[in-house]
Amino acid sequence: MMKLDGIAAFVATVDEGSISAASRRLGLAKSVVSERLAELERTLGMTLLQRSTRSLALTNAGQMLLPRAQRILRELEEASAELDASSGKLAGPLRVSAPVGFGVLHLGPPIGQFLLDNPDIQMSLELDDSFVDAATGGFDAVLRHGAIGDSRLIARRLAMSRRVLVASPAYLARCGTPTSLADLEGHRGILYANRSGDWRFVTGAGTSVIRPKAALRVNNGLVMRDTALAGLGIALLPTFFTYREIRDGTLVEVDVGWPAEGAELFLTYPRDHGAAAKIRALGDSLRRSFGDPPYWERP
């Protein structure tokens, strides 16, 4: 008979792409995960994963087993979560993904407080600036900055955030201060690489799109902010990255007559998720910590 710990080791290894990463996720030694995988394969009498020094690949048997193994683990977690919720207790694992920059700047104290308030929750927080699919990415919940257009997901609003154009005083003294959307076309932009480099503004006629000359493309908001501080160019960034620098004058908010498209913060998770009670509690805790309006939007 297959053991549950072997199934968990198998799913974690496939999800993470390596035994080393699976061992970190499960909180086990690499040798323990390897032995559990080997025992599962011995029980089934077939190979599930082709191993090499650099990669893992599912065999045909592994491809057949994977969706069933994932469903078994998901149903067990959901059953456990439902029992905990019915007793008023929040407990068990909670896997969350969030963007790197926002996590570094704003998630440490709120997450710490949430776990102090709910000591039986075992949270795993992964910071990643690439797109993470909340429905299939192996996480219970994903924190996102921007619109959510996915019918598979529930999106709980955490906080508002504006996007603002910012530049250093040195850059503006050297290159001039744009005062209109047309002026922006001639300036150097520090652009976010994980989406279109277009800058979108809400005008009286709808949405206007500006395509600045790229001084730098990078997939991290903190690096965008820091290169703007260095005087490289103009950046379009959420206020949660720049509010301190705008207040102390090391960055200047550039007004071109129209606001940039805003984007709110959401906590997203699949519909009918068994950990919904824990996710709702996390969302409520984060909203209390950020405030309404959030502290990065206060005068």
Rank of each mutant, 00 (worst) to 15 (best):
L229R: 13
L127G: 04
A147R: 14
A22N: 10
V164R: 15
E82M: 12
Y192K: 01
I210G: 01
I148R: 02
C175P: 00
R288G: 02
A276Y: 01
E35H: 13
L66P: 04
L216H: 01
A79L: 14
S285N: 06
R244I: 15
V202S: 10
A230M: 06
A21Y: 06
A277N: 07
R24V: 15
I210T: 06
S34E: 13
A275Q: 15
P178S: 04
G221Y: 00
V202F: 01
V33Q: 03
T177E: 15
V202D: 05
R163T: 05
S124I: 03
S168C: 09
E78M: 10
A85C: 06
L73D: 04
A135I: 02
R298N: 11
P99V: 01
D150I: 02
S34R: 15
H273T: 00
G283L: 04
R217A: 08
E185L: 08
A205L: 13
H145V: 10
I279L: 05
R25M: 12
V96R: 12
I72L: 15
L232S: 08
T207F: 05
D284S: 13
D272H: 14
S55R: 15
T179I: 03
P99L: 07
R95Q: 06
R188S: 13
L165N: 07
L90P: 01
E75Q: 14
A81F: 00
D128L: 13
F114C: 06
L236Q: 09
R95C: 00
M2A: 08
V164M: 09
V142D: 00
L65V: 12
D133C: 10
E126A: 11
A281H: 09
K213V: 14
D183H: 13
P293A: 11
A21T: 03
P299L: 12
K3D: 14
V142E: 02
G103M: 03
L286N: 04
P93Y: 10
L267C: 09
V254F: 04
T59I: 11
A275Y: 00
R163A: 06
K213P: 00
G197T: 07
Y269L: 07
A281R: 15
A21C: 03
F131S: 09
L165I: 04
L73Q: 06
N220Q: 13
A81T: 01
R25W: 05
L116S: 14
L251A: 05
S18F: 07
P270K: 06
L58Y: 11
P169L: 08
S20G: 10
L216G: 01
D284V: 07
L172N: 03
D255Y: 07
T43R: 13
V14Q: 08
Q70H: 01
D292I: 10
Q122I: 04
S87N: 09
D120R: 13
L107W: 08
V164I: 13
G206D: 11
L127P: 05
M64S: 14
S55Q: 14
F139N: 01
S289L: 02
A276F: 01
G249H: 04
Q63K: 15
R225D: 02
G186P: 09
L282E: 05
F139I: 00
P259T: 07
I121G: 03
L4H: 08
